[in-house]
Structures are given as C-alpha cells and as structure tokens.
Design a protein around this nucleic acid. Structure first.
Lengths: 201, 201
DNA sequence: TAATAAAGTGAATTGCGATTCATTTTATAA
DNA sequence: TTATAAAATGAATCGCAATTCACTTTATTA
C-alpha cells in the first residue's frame, strides 16, 4: 500500500472547497445561479469543470450549502445582537439592525439570497421561504410578548410581523437592486420609526 | 388564387390565442414558468406543440404578454379606484384595496407575478421590478402630496413608500404561498392601520 | 369539386449546460 | 525510486426542453 491522505492535503482540499464557494458567491452575484454554468464557475475558481464534482455532488448541493451558511450567519448575528437587550422593542430593533449590518457587509451574498430569489428548484426556493418565515416568526414572538405586556394594541400580530419584516425586505431589495436608498443605515432609522409607530407603541 | 382569411377564422384564432394564454396562466401557476415545457403547455391548451409557435414567437414572448396584461389590469384597477377620492390618505387606501381585490380575484395570476418571481431572464425580471417600482413611485407621489400639506412628518418619503408597499407585498406573498393569513381582506384592515400609523398621520 | 393557401400536427433536430470518465498529474509510503 | 492511490483535468457524453419542419387537415374560392 502507498498513500493515505495526509493533514497537509486535507487542509489544501478544505481551502480549495472554500475557494470554490467564494468564487461561486461572486459569479452567482454577477450573473445569477441559473445564468452561470459549472464551466464558468470552474473558470472563476481556477479549476477544471470536472474538479467541481470532486467537491460537490452537483450544482444544487453547492447552492444549498451557500444558502445554509448564509442563513446560519444571519441567525447567529441576530441572536448575538438581541442578547444585549431585554426590552421587547430594543430586541426588535437589534434584530433588524443585525440584518441590515450583515447585508451591508455581505452585499454579494445578500444579492444571491434576496434579489435572485431563483425559483431554481423547489428545495432551494423552500429554503428561502423558510428563512423569511423564520424571521417573521421571531418577530411575531417579540410582538406577542409586547402585546401581553399591554404595550401594543390588540391587532393580529402575525400580520404586524409580516408588515414589519416586509417593509425591511422591500427597502433592502431596492437598495441591492438599484442602489436606492443610497444610505441603508440612514434608511434604517426612518424604517424603525415607521414600524414602531406602525405597531402602535 | 384561393383562400383569404375570413372573419370567422380570425375570431377562432383570437379565441385560441386567448385559450393558450389561459392555459399558460394555469400551468405556470401550478408548476412554474421554468418548470413547464411547451409540450406540457400545449397539452393543457389541447394543441400540438408546434401550434404554439404559430401564436407566439417563443416562450418569452408568451410570458411577456401575460405579465404585460397583468400589469395593465392592475394599473387600470388602481386608477379606477383612486379616481373616487380626492384626499391623499383615501387615495392611498383605495390603491392598496384595488391591489388586494385584484389579487384575490386573480390568485393564479398573482402567483405567477409575485411568488414565482422567476429570474427566468433579465427582460422578464426587469418587468417585475418595473411593476414594483411603479407602485412605489405612485405611493411616493401620494406621500409627497400629504407631506406638502403638512400632514406627514418630514421623513424620507421614498423609504416610507417602500415600507408601505413592502408590508403589503409581504402579507400578500405569504397569503399566496401558505395561505396565511387566511383572510386577506381582514388582514388588509390591520395593514392599513399599521401603515397609516407608520406614516405618522 | 378541384385547386390552393392557411392552420395544425408531432416527431425530429438543435442547442445548451450538467455530468461523466479515460487520462494525466501529484502525493504518499515502502 | 518506484508502486500506488488520490486528485485534477477537460473533452466527450447525456439529457432535456425549445424550436423546426415535412407532412396532414381544414377552409376558401373559382
């Protein structure tokens, strides 16, 4: 016998896998998921097309991994920021601020996630919807808590949560798509005011 | 010479074209635009696949015609309802009510337009974005008018308009996707209250 | 009713991009 | 240094769906 994968090689492979993901994020953001062939992706990642399949079973596996990573990062960031507050309104604000900050930091990633929203395949679409619904659910929990404290009017918190998340979604989408509003952080302040009033504080 | 298209035939062709569009709306709503082949569409429309190309130059031409029709219907409906009012807030409410009513009436259509949002091709995507932006623009005009009357705080009306439209968008999307909220008309009332407060009336 | 043109048909073609695979290169260990 | 297994390569294959086209059917008019 002669050859057992050594640590040095393992690290090299790990690195290369990360490079492929990085390249994928870039080309997917430039073109779209659908619009980029494995060939083009491979070119960007500086590997042969066949090599791609040594790292991912297929194109879907790749996009799923990317979306999962994004989702995890988003949730982690939200949880981190929320932990700093106890008041319901503060937590709500912290959540959305975490989103905004992450999107600013990872604009490319956000484009894939939010702008391209490709109906690519059911599994992928379902994942995006799941993320959105998770955010709505988290928001609804905050609203229910505030409502139980008598700090919000007795309206349907599900609809309010959707309105809340939807308003952010729309502004972020437009910012990603056409750069309007120019300053997302500034828009965030307006948006928060809008929604806090909307909730009926 | 022998044969000139007669009126009877012209009408038959017109009818068939409409049937194809109707069938397309149905299958696109069931599966997606991308997910339905011309063959499947033809089957639904009870024509041969080749016949499709006698009516449309290609698949894109079809979806563009459908989206255009939807857009026209939506704008017409909005304008109709708005014309009944002069007060800014009333016009705003009338616009959104017109949207909601049309979406309820044309749920299938709405699914294609809003849920599938396929990144299919740039031209198509651009059209969807255009529709959304048009709505935001119309809303912004209303807000600017209200602002000039001193009936709204001095915040960025573009961001407010996006928040307004986005909140509706989100609720409608969720209603289409998973049937929550169950009663869209009821949600509409909550949403209007939310947004009127949000605007800072 | 016969000649002709429009309308319709669906199997065959085409094109495109994901995936495979025979071959080459690189890394490991005896 | 050599034998062997892993990793990489990219041209060839495969599959799928849009589009075409040779042929059939239907409608019109002389």
């Amino acid at each position: 016998m002669a050859y057992r994968q050594t640590n040095r090689v393992k690290e090299k492979l790990d690195l290369r896998k990360k490079e492929i993901i990085k390249a994928a994020r870039e080309v997917f953001a430039e073109n779209s998921y659908q619009g980029t062939s494995i060939k083009a992706l491979a070119k960007k990642a500086k590997i042969a097309t066949g090599t791609f399949y040594l790292y991912f079973s297929n194109k879907d596996a790749l996009i799923n991994m990317i979306v999962d990573e994004m989702f995890q990062e988003l949730l982690k960031s939200i949880k981190n920021e929320r932990a700093k507050f106890t008041d319901g309104f503060d937590k709500l604000k912290a959540s959305m601020e975490a989103c905004i900050k992450l999107f600013i930091k990872e604009k490319n990633m956000a484009k894939i996630l939010l702008v391209q929203v490709p109906s690519v395949n059911n599994a992928f679409n379902a994942k995006l919807v799941e993320i959105e619904n998770e955010l709505i659910k988290l928001t609804k929990e905050d609203l229910d808590e505030l409502k139980s404290q008598g700090r919000l009017p007795g309206e349907d918190t599900l609809v309010s949560a959707m309105a809340f998340v939807g308003s952010f979604h729309q502004v972020i989408i437009n910012w990603l798509r056409e750069g309007k509003p120019e300053n997302l952080e500034e828009a965030f302040e307006t948006l928060m005011k809008y929604n806090i009033r909307g909730l009926g504080k």
